[in-house]
Simulated scan of single mutants.
Amino acid sequence: MAKKPKFAVGTIVKLKSGGPDMTVREPLIHYTSEEFLGSYSCQWFAGKKSEVDKFPEDSLELVKPEAKGA
């Protein structure tokens, strides 16, 4: 059975090893089989510069939203 992406487009994630919060741009899909490849294209800002790179799902974790009005 094909693996399904754990994170949806727009989900805020970060590397388990640390680093900036990133937004999932897209799960990477094989162009012919259309199966999830186990990695994501993510985007973040380094100062004012937009950065994009690919990361394996196992290296990412969900960023939990902060409680507002605390």
Results as ranks from 00 to 15, higher is better:
62 L>C: 02
61 E>Q: 00
44 W>I: 00
25 R>H: 12
35 E>G: 11
28 L>Q: 13
60 L>T: 01
8 A>L: 11
16 K>M: 00
18 G>I: 00
56 P>D: 07
3 K>M: 12
50 S>P: 02
54 K>N: 14
47 G>F: 08
25 R>D: 13
57 E>R: 09
35 E>D: 14
7 F>W: 04
30 H>Y: 15
70 A>Y: 14
8 A>P: 09
58 D>V: 11
59 S>D: 04
14 K>V: 07
50 S>F: 08
34 E>P: 05
69 G>F: 10
54 K>D: 14
51 E>I: 00
57 E>K: 03
23 T>M: 07
69 G>Y: 12
61 E>L: 04
63 V>W: 03
20 P>W: 04
17 S>T: 02
49 K>V: 05
70 A>K: 15
30 H>N: 15
26 E>P: 10
63 V>P: 02
4 K>M: 13
21 D>W: 08
18 G>A: 05
68 K>L: 12
14 K>A: 01
66 E>Y: 10
36 F>S: 05
6 K>M: 06
30 H>L: 14
62 L>H: 08
6 K>S: 03
52 V>F: 08
64 K>V: 07
53 D>C: 10
41 S>K: 12
19 G>V: 03
5 P>C: 02
59 S>W: 02
50 S>K: 10
30 H>M: 13
18 G>P: 07
48 K>A: 11
69 G>C: 12
44 W>Y: 06
39 S>I: 07
14 K>P: 04
20 P>Y: 00
